[in-house]
Write a protein that binds this DNA or RNA. Structure first.
Lengths: 192, 192
DNA sequence: GTCTATAGGCAGATAGAC
DNA sequence: GTCTATCTGCCTATAGAC
């Protein structure tokens, strides 16, 4: 079920669920929390998402869809590889500033309580994002902005790991500049 | 309460709780799970750790204590800064290989359901570990192995973020070489 | 589609016997 | 210290009226 099949109420439910997952974790909130925030009864939520697994799947689907769209927009808006990476980094800095975690990063903690499909979705998120990063780095190298990489794949894996980990640590540090510093450092390593 | 005040049973409880937290998350297991694995009734567990918050605190305390001890041992066993960083990295590669997360990384997801003390403990873990990394990098620079850093603090923050994030992504990737690749890449950036 | 009411189970936690 | 028994409350989920 793609996210454009969902109606307004379903989207609002996912909005709240997404926020709660990113701040508290998927196992840490209940349908009652959504009820409280949205003013719609838990039984009505079950009407849209019969089980919490269904909710998880729909939530991740929509998140990944939107994230990959955002990356496409970056591709169109920014010219150079470095500018693209910086724009992507800004997304993560924003998430950290909101005291949140990447939805997929958070779900990775809860992964064992998710349906099998959920694991595949998360894997897809990391794969696709790394692929996009590899493309951007390649372009940066061709642009002459970034230095040649011995292993493009490892370099991309490393950048993503640093961003995911940065958001994690930032939550505890509560230091508003921390995530930006991690990003700058990671991109600095890629420069000439 | 330092961990040397705990008796055998308490330690065995913490062993199980630690494993469950690192694989499933703190909110995802119950006293009943410990009972199942240890053959001791939940009420007896409450005897040692009256509330789950108490359990969390004791668990993190012991984990940090042991981790910092391991870093001290590394300091004694290894001579150069780079060798020390590699030895520390091996700890994290081992955790990832066991399909686990760093205990503190995992708890950082659940941080809002922890007692306030827990947050301070996690902050201490990151601070101390970064401090140790900074020392090792400084030594590596003096040894002539590592290149000079514009900001020692940011470089250390970045390395720790990459390691924490690497373990996160590795859980989903289930690629045994992934974590090692992230580590190698991160250390490569520090080299000359 | 949204509601009220409720089932059935498991969570954290406590009392008190041994 | 470890046990049995039990409390209270919250969770996911369903039935059925409107």
């Amino acid at each position: 079920m793609a996210s454009h099949d969902l109606n307004d109420t379903a989207h609002r439910i996912l909005d709240v669920a997404e926020g709660l997952t990113q701040t508290q974790g998927f196992n840490a909130f209940s349908y009652k929390d959504i009820q409280a925030e949205l003013g719609i009864k838990t039984s009505s939520i079950h009407y849209y998402f019969p089980t919490k697994s269904d909710l998880a799947t729909a939530m991740v689907d929509r998140y990944i869809e939107r994230f990959l769209e955002a990356l496409e927009e970056i591709d169109q808006k920014h010219k150079t590889g470095l500018a693209k990476l910086q724009a992507m980094g800004r997304i993560f800095v924003g998430v950290a500033a909101a005291q949140k975690l990447c939805l997929c990063g958070m779900l990775t903690s809860d992964v064992l309580s998710l349906p099998q499909d959920g694991l595949n979705e998360l894997r897809r998120f990391y794969k696709e994002t790394e692929r996009w990063i590899m493309k951007a780095i390649t372009q940066g190298i061709n642009d002459g902005e970034l230095k040649d990489s011995t292993s493009l794949e490892d370099t991309a894996a490393h950048l993503l790991a640093a961003l995911e980990g940065g958001m994690l640590v930032a939550r505890v540090r509560k230091d508003s500049g921390y995530m930006q510093a991690v990003l700058d450092q990671a991109l600095d390593f890629l420069g000439k």
